[in-house]
Simulated assay, not measured.
Amino acid sequence: MHKDSSPDVVVVAPDPGWTVQAEAVAEELYDLLRPLALHVEHIGSTAVPGMAAKPVLDLQVSVRALEEVEGAFTRPLAERGFVLAPYRHDHVPAGSDDDPARWTKRLWIRQGHQGLDVNLHVRRAGSPNERLALLFRDWLRAHPEAVPAYARFKQVLAQAVPDLATYADVKDPVVDLVVAVAEPWARTTGWRPSTTMTARPATHRR
């Protein structure tokens, strides 16, 4: 396969500073979007210690209803450089017969802003895709021995594919395999989705 000299997908070595940046952005967005935003979480590979990743922060905002937040979030997010993307559904894991309508979301993207680019995934609280994002992160955090292999896979994949869409399509089945292992772990350990920021009354704003 021909590879362009400047590929669309770049996976870089882990940076401990990602966590600090993500926490700062998450706190800013939580204060901006509450009380509709119930939780804001750092998810994805940059949330896993020692994981190579695209230098893009993935954050997840949990809400009660997607329909009510799209209009409410668009203007304040636009003022901070976020653009609403057309993607409204997450990948349903292979082998699942779940209704794809339960895997809906809203996605805002910020690029070329101060600091790292940000993907802001807004998902319904209690939905399977909200849960999967946290399970995937927490399983990898609990199994650091699995991190190097997954990181290496992503690095090789980034060099082999021509664009981000292909990268995501190839990566999804591998994520499905991780989830297939993570689900028994969740049942055995009693894992439950945990959140670091919970909606507080608006009168408690700083």
Score class of each variant (00 low, 15 high):
40 V>H: 10
40 V>L: 12
40 V>W: 12
41 E>N: 05
42 H>M: 11
43 I>K: 04
43 I>S: 03
44 G>K: 05
44 G>I: 07
45 S>I: 05
46 T>L: 13
46 T>I: 06
47 A>Q: 06
47 A>N: 10
48 V>T: 06
48 V>A: 01
48 V>Y: 04
48 V>N: 00
49 P>W: 14
49 P>F: 15
50 G>C: 13
51 M>R: 08
51 M>S: 10
52 A>V: 09
52 A>H: 15
52 A>Y: 14
54 K>W: 12
55 P>L: 12
56 V>Q: 13
56 V>W: 08
58 D>K: 09
58 D>W: 09
58 D>Y: 05
60 Q>V: 10
60 Q>I: 12
60 Q>C: 15
61 V>Y: 11
61 V>P: 06
61 V>F: 12
62 S>N: 12
63 V>L: 11
65 A>P: 01
65 A>G: 11
65 A>L: 13
67 E>P: 01
67 E>N: 06
68 E>W: 06
71 G>N: 07
71 G>C: 11
72 A>K: 04
73 F>G: 07
74 T>Y: 00
74 T>M: 01
75 R>N: 02
75 R>G: 03
75 R>S: 02
76 P>G: 07
76 P>I: 13
77 L>R: 02
77 L>F: 14
78 A>P: 01
79 E>H: 08
81 G>N: 07
81 G>T: 11
82 F>L: 04
82 F>A: 01
82 F>D: 02
83 V>M: 06
84 L>K: 09
85 A>N: 08
86 P>N: 13
86 P>M: 09
87 Y>D: 14
87 Y>V: 13
87 Y>T: 13
87 Y>A: 10
88 R>N: 06
88 R>D: 08
89 H>Y: 14
91 H>R: 14
91 H>N: 11
92 V>W: 05
93 P>M: 14
93 P>L: 12
94 A>S: 14
95 G>R: 14
96 S>R: 14
97 D>W: 11
97 D>S: 13
97 D>L: 15
98 D>T: 03
98 D>I: 03
99 D>I: 14
100 P>E: 08
101 A>E: 06
102 R>H: 08
102 R>M: 08
108 W>T: 01
108 W>C: 02
109 I>C: 13
109 I>G: 02
110 R>M: 07
110 R>V: 06
111 Q>P: 00
112 G>S: 08
112 G>P: 02
113 H>A: 15
114 Q>M: 04
114 Q>K: 10
114 Q>T: 10
116 L>C: 04
117 D>V: 05
118 V>E: 07
118 V>K: 04
119 N>F: 08
119 N>P: 00
119 N>G: 01
119 N>T: 08
120 L>K: 00
120 L>D: 00
121 H>R: 10
121 H>F: 10
122 V>K: 01
122 V>W: 05
122 V>I: 15
123 R>C: 07
123 R>T: 05
127 S>V: 03
127 S>E: 06
127 S>P: 00
128 P>E: 11
129 N>T: 07
130 E>L: 10
131 R>C: 13
134 L>P: 00
135 L>N: 03
138 D>W: 12
138 D>P: 03
139 W>D: 01
139 W>C: 02
140 L>C: 01
140 L>P: 00
141 R>A: 11
141 R>P: 06
141 R>D: 09
142 A>C: 01
143 H>Q: 01
144 P>G: 07
146 A>G: 00
146 A>S: 04
146 A>E: 15
146 A>N: 02
147 V>G: 00
147 V>N: 02
148 P>K: 15
